[in-house]
Nucleic acid binder design. Structure first.
Length: 264
DNA sequence: ATGGTGGCACCGCCA
């Protein structure tokens, strides 16, 4: 039987190579008491996944990798059932998607294609990939189901989600076509859980390596997201961006995004 | 800035 109240802390983190940051990751998971972390850009093939390292720390592991790029994983204190790892609109073999069933909710972890250049085939692929997510949810679920969708969405949804909206409007990651595609998924039945708790701007999850002192200069983008259907959003109690993971000796260019939930 | 950094793969590609 469930305890009367159960608190679960869920995170999303584009880790940009799991193996070079696995020790920092585990230290942070333990320090922030993270129950479930969804990772993107693990950049590790399944045969090289650091299974023993995380299992020894008490995590269940669900991962799909490929050589050199992409790659996705969920580490969790409780076990899950892997439902699917093939996005219908995705290129076969690209490790960008996984759907897991936990006791109280479904968790969908995605690494949305970056898009590269507006108007390119990769950009079209990104738009179709996002619209494929809408179709995926519509085909398998109802908006009244308990679903968390999180990951690197590679889209800043609104002008307060980017440091220079006027200058960057129309750029990859802040383009009206991307925003419309993402909005189509949201309109199916999601709420931006971070925004529910933190309505102010200048809250970013991504800082380009190539921009000198980007964190200090607040030159960031909010492109990582943690969304929930209505019933999940109602159970959320807080959300924050763990910017301390950007001050490490070897930071990712993304920071983890966290949300807490209390189940009654 | 035709730039800059970082990771993995291999000697370029991707972000």
């Amino acid at each position: 039987m469930l305890k009367p109240m159960t608190k679960i802390k869920i995170a999303s983190f584009n880790i940009n190579s799991l193996r070079v940051r696995q020790h920092d990751l585990l230290a942070w998971l333990q320090r922030d008491k993270i129950d479930i972390v969804a990772l993107q850009e693990t950049k590790v093939q399944d045969k090289d996944f650091p299974v023993d390292f995380f299992q020894a720390a008490g995590y269940h592991l669900y991962y799909q990798g490929e050589k050199g790029k992409n790659g996705i994983a969920v580490l969790s204190k409780s076990p899950a059932v892997l439902l699917d790892h093939k996005n219908p609109a995705g290129v076969p073999g690209e490790a960008r998607f996984q759907a897991l069933q936990y006791e109280r909710f479904t968790l969908v972890n995605t690494y949305v294609p970056q898009g590269r250049e507006v108007g390119s085939d990769y950009f079209t692929y990104k738009i179709n990939w996002l619209l494929g997510m809408r179709d995926y949810f519509a085909a398998h679920y109802k908006p009244s189901d308990a679903i968390i969708w999180l990951g690197d969405f590679n889209v800043a949804p609104t002008p307060i989600d980017i440091y220079a909206p006027d200058k960057l409007l129309g750029s990859v990651g802040f383009h009206p076509d991307e925003q419309a595609a993402l909005e189509a998924v949201r309109a199916w039945g999601f709420e931006d859980i971070f925004r529910r708790h933190v309505p102010t701007g200048e809250q970013y999850t991504f800082f380009d390596y190539r921009v000198p002192n980007a964190v200090k200069r607040k030159m960031g983008w909010r492109i990582d997201h943690l969304w929930g259907t209505k019933c999940m959003a109602a159970l959320s109690t807080e959300s924050y961006i763990a910017l301390d993971q950007r001050t490490l000796e070897r930071p990712s260019d993304h920071a983890p995004l966290v949300a807490s939930f209390v189940f009654h």
